[in-house]
Design a protein around this nucleic acid. Structure first.
Lengths: 231, 231
DNA sequence: CCATGTGAAAACTTTCACAGCG
DNA sequence: CGCTGTGAAAGTTTTCACATGG
């Protein structure tokens, strides 16, 4: 299973949708929207209104009957659910390759309140430099720095089979959660949530969906032809 | 809903797991493994043996009772399911930023049979160069080139709100499927599968899971303390 | 004897339908 | 009157349990 973490209580799919609602609300706030209905939020995200209401109601009663949800209030509530309150999540990147650099450069990630405080690599040419203003340290300093800075999230962006060892270093240093972007599944102690995202798997899945869609289209076409002959 | 595409028949989760099985089998082949049981595959991926068997059986009967699955054969079968047969999937990247470059550089994606044939950007400094041996064309040439080369998959790696317009250009040029890495949901005609991956959402989800895990740990601790006082 | 493949049961998720309240 | 919040129904996925066959 790609996400090693078991959501326990709130379904995984609900969490994913909550993130989408938050993304929509951020957009709506810029647009100056004051009130939003479950239906509108549903149309923006491609789910049903009932689902939006059910998802939200598993965290509280945020709406007003008759009018909908206060956009500003709902955004704040969801931000709180995701822990974007007093705390700013500190992060580090392990593996300053092209994917690591992409994460360091992502403005969207920073907008959600995540702050990169360190990056790690074994390449002596990279160590000592700064990438997107974030200092790159040698991998051998990982434990010391993660522990000293109290870094919350570690993102693994190494290509190779080193991922498992790095995960171990991270949780031994007291990391609170791991994002694994390597094509390698990771086992960590129960207490440490691990979320794995394998970009190459997305290409694979898409190629399956393309084939199904095209096969379905061919079958529909065949049906139409059969029907036109059956007069 | 992030994945706009409806899997219709085979559940989405099954497809995701099939990809993981393929990844494991590739590894096992290198290790020289000849036969594998559903249980072993399950342990490697963190699912149950029943689930592996159920997943596989929705595509065919690949196993031998008493012994398990022939690793080589099963790998080939799953490759075929994912369309890795005669055809090599041609891809293009729209937006040669850091994420676009990361995808172009990914050896894992190429190992699954995906081949980049073009990249597009609006930046005149990038246009005309090659990134990872792939030529960068102006965005204005997108339709012509996608159509001429018959490109199958378009990956959108632009940061901004341009994603929707690019998606439209892609499907008007006859693309067969879209991978959307922008933090923007995309609507395409039914026939064109779209898979959206928003990396910033993964950070968000992880922060939720970290909080749940830590809260659960605190509650367990409280229970232990309560129990020790209840003697 | 061992592990697959699969009906049937259990668990979970989504949708329906509507009571309840601003 | 309109939209939320939620029991109950419908639908889907996972797990259980075991018949089946190499």
């Amino acid at each position: 299973m790609v996400p090693t973490y078991k959501s326990d209580g709130v379904p995984k799919a609900t969490i994913a949708r909550m993130g989408m609602y938050l993304r929509c609300l951020t957009y709506l706030e810029q647009q100056g929207t004051v009130t939003i209905s479950s239906r509108e939020l549903a149309d923006m995200t491609g789910v049903t209104g009932e689902q939006v209401r059910r998802d939200l109601s598993s965290f509280g009663r945020f709406g007003k009957r008759g009018s909908g949800y206060d956009a500003k209030r709902l955004k704040t509530e969801i931000e709180t659910i995701f822990g974007r309150g007093a705390e700013r999540w500190t992060c580090c990147i392990v593996g300053v390759g092209s994917l690591g650099t992409a994460l360091l450069a992502s403005r969207t990630i920073q907008k959600w309140g995540f702050k990169y405080v360190a990056a790690f690599d074994t390449d002596p040419d990279k160590v000592g430099t700064r990438v997107e203003h974030v200092p790159v340290y040698p991998l051998s300093d990982l434990k010391t720095i993660v522990r000293r800075e109290g870094i919350a999230i570690g993102a693994i962006t190494t290509p190779g089979p080193s991922a498992r060892g790095i995960a171990r270093m991270l949780w031994e240093a007291g990391i609170r959660g791991i994002l694994n972007f390597s094509p390698q599944s990771i086992k960590a102690p129960e207490k440490i949530p691990v979320l794995s995202v394998d970009l190459s798997q997305e290409f694979l899945k898409l190629s399956f969906y393309i084939q199904s869609a095209e096969q379905r289209a061919r079958e529909e076409q065949a049906e139409i032809i059969a029907a036109s002959h059956a007069d």
